[in-house]
Design a protein around this nucleic acid. Structure first.
Length: 211
DNA sequence: GCCCAGGTGGGTA
DNA sequence: TACCCACATGGG
């Protein structure tokens, strides 16, 4: 899976602070619209910390293409206000604390849930964590690697047991692309899927996939 | 016109 | 604790 889909679909931002902004913008939004909004912000402000000097109205206007703009403008401001004093203007001190501690602090920031916290830790603090997005959750359940009702943490734990730390970041990327490009609909294009033998195995083992 | 996209937080039972 | 729902634009 890593060989087929492990190429980076999302080049990390300059620093973790822009990474935080990009991740909030990407919530329930496709990457193309996320990129539009992020690009407007980066044309207007040199650093993510500079966003705090914008008015809420201006921030809302700039991020509109990403959708949910009223909510996201609030979340970006609030999260930066909480996390910059703690980790520095570029969130450069994120990797100086143990990932479990950093995760707790991140989760206390408004607008930062488990997915956003884990993306920051995995991409900007080198933590061996697999962030669970909607695609990863779907295919992990569908392949029977986690129960249909499994929570975010249960899915993360199931995958992290299977995948060694050094492969987790690329596995995260590969799993998302697999989920988006192959295993998205209720009728996955299994004929085109390089993993079809594995899917077949999973199906036979489980009786049926949770399509 | 409908569906979906790399979630989160508030409300309700 | 476990669900349900609002949030909103842009493209297929």
């Amino acid at each position: 899976m890593i060989d087929v889909w492990g190429r980076h679909p999302w080049s990390p931002q300059q620093d973790a602070a822009w990474g935080l902004v990009a991740t909030i913008l990407s919530q329930n939004t496709n990457w193309q619209n996320t990129r539009r909004a992020l690009s407007s912000l980066q044309q207007r402000c040199r650093t993510a910390a500079d966003l705090l000097s914008l008015s809420v109205k201006e921030l809302e206007r700039l991020i509109r293409p990403a959708g949910l703009w009223r909510i996201k403008a609030k979340r970006i401001r609030a999260a930066l206000q909480v996390l910059i004093p703690r980790f520095g203007p570029h969130l450069e001190r994120l990797h100086e604390v143990p990932p479990t501690v950093a995760r707790q602090i991140l989760l206390e920031a408004p607008g930062v849930g488990p997915k956003t916290a884990d993306v920051l830790l995995a991409f900007y603090a080198g933590a061996p964590i697999i962030p669970i997005d909607t695609h990863i959750a779907r295919i992990t359940r569908r392949l029977g690697l986690a129960a249909p009702s499994a929570s975010y943490e249960q899915i993360r734990s199931a995958l992290e047991k299977l995948i060694p730390p050094k492969h987790r970041l690329r596995a995260h990327i590969a799993l998302i692309r697999f989920g988006r490009e192959v295993c998205r609909s209720r009728n996955p294009r299994c004929a085109k899927c390089p993993l079809r033998s594995f899917c077949k195995y999973a199906r036979s083992r489980k009786g049926s996939l949770n399509h």
